[in-house]
Write a protein that binds this DNA or RNA. Sequence first.
DNA 1: CTTGATATTGATCGCTGATCAATTTATTTA
DNA 2: TAAATAAATTGATCAGCGATCAATATCAAG
Lengths: 198, 198
Amino acid sequence: MARRSDHTREELWWLAINASRKVVEKEGLRGIRARQIARDIGYTIGTLYNLFDDLDDLIMQMNGETLDQLMQECSKVELTQNPNMDLERLVHCYLSFTHENPKLWNAIFEHKLPEDRPVPEWYSEKVSRLLALIEHALAPILSGRSDAEIHQHARILWMSLFGMTVLEGSGRLQEGETSLMLAKTLIKTYVDGLKNAP
Amino acid sequence: MARRSDHTREELWWLAINASRKVVEKEGLRGIRARQIARDIGYTIGTLYNLFDDLDDLIMQMNGETLDQLMQECSKVELTQNPNMDLERLVHCYLSFTHENPKLWNAIFEHKLPEDRPVPEWYSEKVSRLLALIEHALAPILSGRSDAEIHQHARILWMSLFGMTVLEGSGRLQEGETSLMLAKTLIKTYVDGLKNAP
DNA sequence: CTTGATATTGATCGCTGATCAATTTATTTA
DNA sequence: TAAATAAATTGATCAGCGATCAATATCAAG
């Protein structure tokens, strides 16, 4: 039966997203099932499809939520204008998050939209905002360079960190190796390279 | 009807793997369908399940084949004992492969076995052999430092390259960005950092 | 109280991965 | 050569999936 007054549309959205997150945290992306999530939030499958276009949409929104949470954490980091320190703090924050939410983080790169479906703009923007944090921290040592160059270095660092988290997530780090240690060495060496570049 | 003499078991295996590769090359992992692959090789679904435990098994074997091909390519690289040149050649070979086979490469990281199912040993070995090859070529550039240090820097570079290929494979690079360009900047900057480290 | 807009339902569709008894073929044995 | 054994192949079958949509129930406005 229709129960429009039980929850607002927004409340319903959050119920569904949180139910999805719980499933993924426990079983990974594989565990996502429309009927199960509908059941979890006390509605039927039809209502779920009234909220989301399809499962791809739901997963994208859930992943967007994960990006938002990471952004919120990283925003707390106090910047000192010392690139080495600022980056290290950001990286620590980033890696803490991925370490504490491995399955949710994995979902972000495990999930692939169908070929013909472009990544929504609102999603790309969330990613861009995270990148901007790194760019901002890098800026002081790259003051004489073009925006494009700053942007590229930020993206390189981002992708490198990303590689570490993926390999950590799939258990391919060695004994005694942590992504935090590796990332610290990466940042230190890379920033040295930027400072002393010809 | 049974046609045991049409193809040997091994021939059948290759037919199925190649059919799967073709599907993935065109449509990505999403496109893999048991019935379709069976049809493609001129047999029925039952025969496919006589060859593979399930679709996870088939995909793992297909991915193993991709790893083998990359290994074969990288093995062709002539080593000159000039670390800089060897490194560049190997990285070029690695990135060329992932660039030319983005969907197949991506399938390796998109696919996740169910939680309770361990990665087969034969698969882990393929990955390890590949990692060892790349580490070995990266290591000489860091001579003069402790083995542990060399090892760590080599792995950091490898993981960073890895992150770029994954993001490239999933279509997350920007317009005009290539993993080769990014990798060159990464390596140049990183090596600068190593040379000029305090 | 009536009307219109919206939320919700659940039966339904076409598909999927996977199973397995029955059938057909090849090989081995007598 | 003929019968017995082993192996490969089939396809009907099952439970479950994502997705759709006409019917229904509820709420808000007139």
